[in-house]
Design a protein around this nucleic acid. Structure first.
Lengths: 190, 190
DNA sequence: CGTCTATTTGAATGTACTCAAAAGCGGTGG
DNA sequence: CCACCGCTTTTGAGTACATTCAAATAGACG
């Protein structure tokens, strides 16, 4: 559990054993059963969450009750409702496990303490945020300029494993189309 | 020019006069005429750009030549093609001035040197990235779950001034609809 | 094996788009 | 300062893509 997150941190900064111990002591482990919630819209839970094992979807629910997936997070990825995290406001996004999932939570308070105590973490979270920013910028680019058909082809290509793990309706909700329409696209391109 | 960017930095970290001097010495000022380019798709130009005065649109062009705007940046905002910036690859996005615009560029090299020399900047860029991440996450949420009509209403509400400054067709390209359709929405809600 | 949910299929509908043309507006030069 | 030119916005008709709704089929899990 901790080795995974330490390896993730070690990709960008090098910690001493003491710093590693301090860091891991701040983390709150949680096991979430399949279809259980890491966070529900409306809750106030300022956590940044690391996925050790399993898969989490981050989604928004519209006025008519339809769900729209912003991102999937599998092993080694971080997820959050960033507005809820940084401002402590009630979440507008929900985070749900799609498989039995093991996560580690870091609260905003602990994150700030960590950056104070071990300034190297400023760098780590800077890089983490930058990568996240880049990821989201490309996602918006794709949503605006590509057709559903091309977005689906790319998704299959870029996340071949994920495609096996999550239901079609969730992929549709990620691509921004109805499950019926995705089904039709699949039929057409086969 | 420099006071603006220093004020922006001062929102999150406090610099000594020496540090301020070191920082501003790394910046490359550029004046861009109306409809001139800060960056064109295909170019390699790893700059993070601060808008001192004016307005910049960040957009992608699709296979059929249609332009889709990811973001507007006015006074006090930063903009970039994050993938081009962090990896030094050719840009897939273009940044164009919509008014006579004054910008300050910071190269990736200089940004890294800055973080080495003045570690406080790790913190600054962490917060900058976090805010950017949050901004994009909410934008994706809106694109996926709101109708064009609601997105337009929100845009007017959240950016009342921008609405005066940029052409309707650019707002349409930001909302993800055609100018004709936006025109129809405006007529309907008046 | 049975139940419950996900996926596929099809028909009817509607939203947003394309294309074309008119009207409006702003910037520029005479 | 006014008139013209070009670009933007509006308007309308026809169209296409994606949706909704309903039902059948397939698949997963207990």
């Amino acid at each position: 559990m901790y080795p995974d997150i330490l390896a993730n941190v070690a990709r960008h900064i090098t910690l001493t054993p003491d710093e590693e111990a301090y860091f891991t002591a701040l983390l709150v482990p949680q096991h979430v059963p399949r279809y259980g919630f890491v966070l529900q819209a409306g809750q106030r839970a300022p956590y940044l969450t690391f996925v050790v094992q399993g898969c989490v979807r981050t989604y928004a629910t519209d006025a008519r009750g339809k769900e729209h997936i912003l991102a999937f997070a599998t092993e080694g990825w971080w997820c959050m409702d960033s507005t809820a995290f940084f401002h402590g406001t009630p979440a507008t996004l929900s985070l749900q496990a799609l498989e039995p999932t093991q996560v580690l939570h870091l609260s905003l308070e602990h994150m700030e303490a960590l950056c104070q105590q071990v300034p190297k973490f400023e760098r780590f979270f800077r890089i983490l945020s930058q990568n996240g920013f880049q990821h989201l910028q490309r996602r918006i680019e794709a949503l605006l300029k590509l057709t559903a058909e091309v977005r689906f082809a790319r998704f299959q290509h870029q996340h071949p494993r994920l495609h096996q793990r999550v239901a079609q309706k969730h992929i549709a909700a990620y691509l921004g189309v109805t499950p019926e329409f995705l089904s039709m696209l699949r039929k057409k391109n086969s």
